[in-house]
Structures are given as structure tokens and as C-alpha cells.
């Protein structure tokens, strides 16, 4: 595995009258009762996380679960109470204000839920803003801004003001702005939550298209599980300030770590998520002359075939070897389990 871009160890963010003392007093692991008694609130509790280069890590949780606080701790928009955030080898929590400004100027980009555009600036000046504060001259920053504006599909709107654009267009500006400095890591804080469902879908496609071109390291915050499944390489599920499980979507569905995760993943369309490999039984004998499926196909894609057969269907891997078998009953269980 490559060196993680962001490594976060034992991260705490506590709100209250004396957060640091409170944490130290309870050996860096206060119980929920202790939180309640002292009036402190643990927004982020003992979070450990590693973000691999080029992956999309989605942090998912309901409102108040601490997901937005985590992403703000990683960029030090919020000062964490305790812990370590190692970004490309440097400990961010030990960086001076000046060093943080440099890091944010060159290595981080962020997209916000409500776009956070500057209302008095045109599209091009909003996109060029991060370059402007670095002192890049006007011609150069406008040239770069135009490139990105074209990339996000807003060519021709450079001179518009944010209020003259639709929500989806405004968020395209937000995305363009966050990419202006070619950041190494890209934070997206519920970027599509404020948009209509149809636009949201379109923007998700747009986002995947951009990621195919750019291969950024991404931390994506959302409360929408469908969105998570569509976009994520890996998923961290948060509950009351803690990450309760970190893994691929399939892992969350097949091996939920807690009842909370199970309840959360219950209603997701498994047909598109589960692979044959995670459902199949052991191989029974050599390959027959009936139809066969490969182990990396999705259940939804083979369900029709398998259910139409009386006998178990042979499962083969990429190189054609038999690795298992799939019965009608297994498919039905996988698709409809937990529904009764």
C-alpha cells in the first residue's frame, strides 16, 4: 500500500468549558456519562483514519454525527482538541499559522454545502480568488481560471455573478474554485446536499467524470447513502463522533460491524452492490455444460439467469477456473434478506 496522504491518529474535538483538561482528566477516553456530567460534547472522538492517494473516501453519517467536524479538523478550519493529523509527512497540528496558509494555498481544496461563493465577485474572479490571494498576477490567474471554468462546463458564464446562476451552476463554480490551485487533496463537504435530486444526480456524474480526469485524493462528506454507494471507494460510517466502520460498500453490507451499520445499510439496493463472490457457495464438482457466471459480476446482473435454472450455476473466476456455485436460494436470500 502506498504512503497515505492523510493519516489521522486519535483525533478528538471536544466542545465545552475546558476541553483539553477534561480529556486529560479522563485518560483521553471519557465515557458518555462523563461527557454528560461535565457538559462537554464530543463532536469527534478518537478517530483514526488513513486516506490513500487517488481514492475517494466518503465519510457518511446523519446530521450531528461529527462528519463535518472531522473534515474541518483535517484542514484545521477547526482546531482539534487532541490527536495527530499527518498530511504528506508533516504534522498539521504543529504547523504555524503561516505554514498552514501555505499548505492551504497549494495543497488543499474544499467545496462547501451552500457553495460559499463571494457574492460581489464574478464567476471568473471567484474561481481565481485562491490564486489572487497568493499574489498570482491577473492575466495568469484569469487564464488558469478560464481553463477550469471550461472543465466544469461553465464556459461563457465567466462574467456572471453568483446570484445570476442556478444552484447547480453555483456549485460548479465552487468546484472550479477548489480546483484552481491544483490541490493534492480535495475536501467536499456535502457538496450536493443543497441541490434538487435530479441536479444532484447530474452533478455526481460530473464529479466522477472530473475524478477520472484528475485522480485527486478525495474526502467526501455526505448523509446520503445512495450517493455514498455511487461514489465511494471506501466508506467511513460515523455515529456520535466515532467512526464505527471503515470499509468498502460491500463489506459494510456483508459484514456490518454494529447494529447501527446494519440498520443503515438494510435498505440499500443490494442487487447492484453484492458480487457473486460474496454470495456463492463452495464449488460442487467440475464445470458442467450449463451456463456459468464470473465471480466479479453483480448479483443483480445474474439474478435472472440463476433463478431460471433448476440446478446451481457454476461460478468461474477471470481465468476460467471454477471457484464456486450459485443456487437460486442463495440469490433470493441475498436480495431479500432482512426484508421480512
Amino acid at each position: 500500500m502506498a504512503e497515505p496522504v492523510i493519516l489521522c491518529r486519535g483525533l478528538w474535538k471536544i466542545y465545552g468549558s475546558e476541553p483539553a483538561k477534561f480529556l486529560a482528566r479522563h485518560d483521553s477516553n471519557p465515557s458518555p456519562e462523563q461527557f454528560e456530567q461535565s457538559g462537554h460534547i464530543g463532536a469527534v472522538q478518537d478517530v483514526n483514519l488513513d486516506v490513500q492517494p487517488g481514492e475517494i473516501l466518503v465519510i457518511m453519517g446523519l446530521s450531528g454525527s461529527g462528519k463535518s467536524t472531522i473534515v474541518r479538523c483535517l484542514s484545521r478550519l477547526i482546531e482539534p482538541t487532541h490527536g495527530q493529523v499527518i498530511f504528506q509527512g508533516t504534522d498539521l497540528l504543529k504547523a504555524t499559522e503561516k505554514e498552514m496558509i501555505e499548505i492551504r494555498r497549494h495543497k488543499m481544496g474544499m467545496v462547501f454545502q451552500n457553495f460559499a461563493l463571494l457574492p460581489h465577485r464574478t464567476v471568473i474572479d471567484n474561481v481565481a480568488f485562491p490564486l489572487e490571494v497568493q499574489g498570482v498576477d491577473r492575466a495568469q490567474r484569469h487564464e488558469r481560471a478560464l481553463e477550469i471554468i471550461e472543465l466544469v462546463g461553465l464556459k461563457g458564464r465567466e462574467k456572471y455573478y453568483p446570484r445570476e446562476l442556478s444552484g447547480g451552476q453555483q456549485q460548479r463554480v465552487g468546484i472550479a474554485r477548489s480546483l484552481a490551485v491544483e490541490p493534492d487533496v480535495w475536501f467536499l463537504d456535502e457538496p450536493f446536499s443543497a441541490l434538487d435530486p435530479l441536479i444532484r444526480r447530474e452533478m455526481q456524474d460530473e464529479f466522477l467524470r472530473l475524478q477520472n480526469l484528475l485522480h485527486k485524493t478525495i474526502i467526501f462528506i455526505t448523509h446520503d447513502f445512495d450517493e455514498t454507494v455511487r461514489l465511494a471507494d471506501r466508506i467511513a460510517i460515523m455515529y456520535e463522533g466515532r467512526i464505527v466502520q471503515l470499509g468498502t460498500a460491500e463489506e459494510l453490507v456483508t459484514k456490518p460491524a454494529t447494529d447501527y451499520v446494519r440498520a443503515f445499510t438494510r435498505d440499500i439496493p443490494k442487487a447492484k452492490l453484492l458480487t457473486v463472490a460474496s454470495v456463492m457457495g463452495p464449488a460442487n464438482g467440475a464445470r458442467g455444460d450449463g451456463p456459468a457466471v464470473t465471480d466479479d459480476q453483480r448479483i443483480g446482473d445474474v439474478a435472472g439467469l440463476v433463478i431460471g435454472q433448476d440446478k446451481p450455476v457454476t461460478v468461474v473466476n477471470g481465468s476460467g477456473n471454477v471457484v464456486g456455485s450459485l443456487t437460486r436460494q442463495q440469490v433470493v436470500d441475498a436480495l431479500f434478506a432482512d426484508r421480512s
Partner: peptide
Amino acid sequence: VAEEVLEAGVMAGCTRRQMLWRVRIPAAR
């Protein structure tokens, strides 16, 4: 001024002075 707008300013790498003159005051217009 909306918290997110301020955060956008910080994430763009504004110094304190830039935050005041280029983000806070124009956004409060």
C-alpha cells in the same frame, strides 16, 4: 457573514488581513 464563506476564505489561504478586506467586508456589503 456566513461561516462557510469565511471558511472558503481560509481554505483559499487568506491571511488575516486578506480575510478582512477581501472576504468579510465585501461579503457584509
